[in-house]
Structure formats: C-alpha cells, structure tokens
C-alpha cells in the first residue's frame, strides 16, 4: 500500500510537471468541456422560459445548476484514453509500459487525476462565473454533499475501467474511431449529458438505469442537486459498485487477451 502511495505520488508529480509545459493546449482542451454543457444549458433554459418557466419539473434555475454540475462531474470523470492507445501501440510506447513491474493502468489513472487537479484552477472559477451569470441558486444539504464524494469516486473509477478496457480494442484493430464515436453518442443520451434523464421517455430512462452510463455522470449530479431520496441513493451506490466490479473484470479480461495478441511491432 505504501509502495503504491509512492508510485502514485511520483506519477502525479510527473503529470503535473509535464502538463505544465503545455498550458495553452491544456486550456484549449478544457474549452470543449466547458462549451458543450453551456450550449445545452442555454437551449434548455430558453425552452423552459417559453414553456412558462419549467420543463418536466426542471425550472430555469434547475437547468442552470444541473449543467454547471454536469460540467464539473463530467470534467472529473472524463478520460481520453480511448484515443491514446492506438498511438501508443503503434509507436511502441506501450512496450515501455509493459516492461515495468506495474499494471499500466496506474500510470493512466494518476496522470488523469493529475490533469484534473491542475485544471481545477480554471474549472472552479468558470463554474462560479457561470453560476453568477445565470443567477443560479443552489442550496445543498450536508448529506447530499457527503454522499456525493463516494458517488463521484465510484463514477470516476468505473468509467475509467470501462473506457480503459475499450481502449484495449486497439490490440485487435487500429481503426477504433468509429467505435469511439458510437460510444460518445450513446453516452450523450444515456448519461444525462444532453438532458436530465427525467425528461426522456420512460424506455430511455429504463435503459439508462440498466446500462452503466447514468451511474458515471447523471447520478452524482442528481445527488448534488438533492434530487435523490436516501433509498435511491443506496440503490445507486449499489449499481455503481456493480459497474465498478464489472468494469474491472472487463478491463482485466480484455487486457490479458490483448497482451497475448500484442505484436510489439516497431518497438
């Protein structure tokens, strides 16, 4: 455990040092994560205004708070690993990782967390700015804040396992862009990113409950907004734990099968 702490500390430090070198590109990357929820926020607020102040139980203010929360949670849990593996395998970087006596996912997790911490410096003021601009009012309860922390960690980890496992598809084909695109579209609808899931037809909501994506974004957001009852919270945490385990097994399975196929070309 102590050894892992030292390893994470080193990776983390390295991630900060390296990303500091690329401040501008980092800001450009962030822009996408800010603009997308902002766009939905403006659209839904306008719709709510025209419908007399609310859509499906969401007021103008609810939409503002929802999308600011989506922006932050999405920022906390997103990964770019599915785009990175093809490149890594192609140029042989993956071989270097495989030679190390540690699972390569640790490097990626700590790198991701390092990036998130660094970018909080930008994201927190932006969230505050948006809250001020849209005059968002949010009164969190203490227990929802307390429940949010484990829900966010579980969301982050289960999403990481799932997407890391999907990135391993690069062992079988180097053309994974189409798969990634399909994944993004699916999560857009089923994670609550496009709109709160309550606004979707019943069958979409049922599908979202069954699939993992809701638990990786909408659920922590709903907790933060105080829209989850204690029972729903327990069920949700249970679902998150299930997907954490499923994601872990999926990731390990596909990783082990993948390295058997790995040809280490050009490395």
């Amino acid at each position: 455990m102590l050894a892992f702490y030292a390893i994470y500390k080193s990776y983390f430090r390295l991630a900060l040092m390296e990303q500091f070198q690329y401040r501008v590109s980092m800001l450009i990357w962030l822009l996408g994560g800010i603009i997308e929820p902002l766009m939905y926020l403006v659209v839904w607020r306008t719709v709510a205004q025209q419908q007399g102040g609310a859509v499906g139980g969401y007021t103008e203010n609810d939409f503002a708070v929802y999308y600011i929360a989506v922006m932050m949670v999405s920022h906390a849990t997103f990964t770019w690993i599915m785009w990175e593996y093809v490149y890594r395998i192609r140029i042989g970087l993956f071989s270097v990782m495989l030679l190390k006596p540690i699972h390569p996912i640790h490097n990626d997790i700590s790198y991701n967390v390092g990036y998130k911490f660094l970018t909080l410096v930008v994201m927190v003021p932006i969230a505050a700015l948006l809250a001020w601009f849209f005059d968002a009012s949010w009164q969190p309860t203490l227990w929802s804040l307390a429940a949010f922390v484990p829900a966010l960690i579980l969301a982050f980890l289960s999403r990481f396992y799932l997407e890391w496992g999907m990135a391993m598809v690069a062992f079988w084909t180097t053309r994974i862009d189409a798969m990634n695109q399909a994944y993004i579209v699916t999560t857009l609808f089923l994670s609550g990113k496009l709109a709160p899931l309550e606004l979707f037809p019943q069958f979409v909501q049922v599908t979202a409950n069954i699939l993992p994506f809701r638990w990786m974004l909408a659920f922590p957001v709903e907790i933060l907004l105080g829209r989850v009852t204690p029972i729903e919270l327990l069920i949700g945490i249970g679902a998150q734990l299930f997907w954490l385990l499923a994601g872990y097994l999926f990731m390990q399975l596909i990783y082990r099968a993948g390295i058997k196929r790995y040809a280490a070309f050009g490395a």
Binding site: S10, R13, L14
Partner: peptide
C-alpha cells in the same frame, strides 16, 4: 519522459521498482 528532467524519470523508476 520527453519534457521533464532526466532525474525525475529516475525518481519515477525508483518508486515503480
């Protein structure tokens, strides 16, 4: 690691190994 001083990569290896 391309962008950071050599000694920092050494430090990382110290932890990993």
């Amino acid at each position: 690691v391309w962008d950071i001083p050599v000694i920092d990569t050494f430090e990382l290896n110290r932890a990993v190994y």
